[in-house]
Amino acid sequence: MRSLIYALNTMAQRPFNAGSPAGYSALNGGWAGSDALMKRIDWVARLSQYVNKSPQKIVEQVFGDTLSSATVQSVARAESRSQGLALLLLSPELQRR
């Protein structure tokens, strides 16, 4: 389960770690930061369609108590599993790992 999350997170980073001037982290300043974040959101949203695991199970089994209650609640209230997974992968905690 951990390796799945690691893989997904790494994949989510891929378009942005291309080693080119376009590969800015979402945490940098300026337009590049927001553009990179939007691309990452699009990417993760699509990625999440392919994973069948319950995001709530992932939260329990991989992260235990280490996530904020805001993130946990957001995942629980998602309108579909894939949206829940996208929210988890895009949560502030995972964006900063």
Binding site: L37, A45, Q83, L87, P92
Partner: peptide
């Protein structure tokens, strides 16, 4: 592009994160 609903929920999730919140709003 990702669905608007996902972005709306992210805005809520990023409420207390200055950097991510402003990046999202800008984007």
């Amino acid at each position: 592009a990702a669905e608007d609903d996902l972005c709306t929920r992210l805005a809520l999730l990023y409420e207390n994160d200055d950097v991510l919140g402003s990046r999202l709003r800008e984007g």
